[in-house]
Design a protein around this nucleic acid. Sequence first.
DNA 1: GTCTATAGCGCGATAGAC
DNA 2: GTCTATCGCGCTATAGAC
Lengths: 203, 203
Amino acid sequence: MAKVKKAELDLSTEEKIKEAASIVFTKKGYGNARTRDIAEEAGINLALLNYYFRSKEKLFQIVMADRIDKLFGVLAPILNDASTTLEGKLEKITENYIDMLLEHPDLPIFVLSEIRNNPDQLSNRLQAPKLLKESVFVKQIAERRSDINPFHFLMNLLGMNLFPFVAKPVLQPILGNEEQYRQLMEQRKKLIPVWMKLMLDHG
Amino acid sequence: MAKVKKAELDLSTEEKIKEAASIVFTKKGYGNARTRDIAEEAGINLALLNYYFRSKEKLFQIVMADRIDKLFGVLAPILNDASTTLEGKLEKITENYIDMLLEHPDLPIFVLSEIRNNPDQLSNRLQAPKLLKESVFVKQIAERRSDINPFHFLMNLLGMNLFPFVAKPVLQPILGNEEQYRQLMEQRKKLIPVWMKLMLDHG
DNA sequence: GTCTATAGCGCGATAGAC
DNA sequence: GTCTATCGCGCTATAGAC
């Protein structure tokens, strides 16, 4: 076979292991992943993994922190940008999310299911509550619709963007082949902001 | 402590084990769950688990089939009901889903993440593609909006209903305490159909 | 730093008494 | 049917040569 693994790039050994761990953990989850899988994916020996990262758990923490940053990094900088309108934010968030998720479709289901297993993971990393409530984004929504909790709209936005990827294994066979799935997601880049504006201005 | 486990009801031993397995698998996922956890939750000995179910894997298959039925059972009967309008379906699906998910909040993340690990699980159980495409629900949407793929609306509906539960571990600290979370979900029972109708009739 | 070999143990599964 | 005791594997982690 001689199949070249994704992590076999010209990186330092430590980086190769981290890359491989990210791939294997994201695909299988912590409990189903084996350190042997990661070592093989990285093209190195099992002992080296412990030499660099001490334990499976420590390696996982590092990968997890990185994946959380990737998933929420799309959102965070835009929420507090005072120079864009609410409409602009909806468009930018949607475009960034769908582009990123088409490249990393199993990222949301991984992060969300692992946080379920260990909710503390997050609370350290995300001091979201205060940050979100005081965000420009939430204030802009509240101005528009004082009658509805702004977080409803945030949930809708995230749901419409993330859910098709969270549920991809279920939806894929329904929606057709990979290319058809991709086209539908591309369509959503334009449709989601339109729908969101509708909800904000009517209803 | 003498804490009474949920599965310690007046059921047959086989049922007690199945109940316990459902609880433990749903909470931790297959890979993180231990057969010893399940035995303890059921209040029986580890050997009995194998006596009734032969293996962890077999027990899991049974639980998984049941959980998939529960998650999609909310949807399936309504989609092909020719006697209700599209509006009626939107209201019924939303109310049923939110009521059910308030009682079983970790059901969607469990089913979706386990299907990711083993997509074949589903394809046997759900011959959804044909069934969905020919459903009354999809036809009713197509009548209303011939310009947009009906599955966009289905994804939106499911996303708005399921996503707040899939992402509950992340959203909960943002949205407040358990009671506040519950109130928001109760509000959504009325709001989601309104939003869905907006999307169908405008945009 | 990287390897081979193996320790140590948690896990699923089974044997066998009652 | 239900238990106690234990097997044997596969896993994480480490020792030690190079």
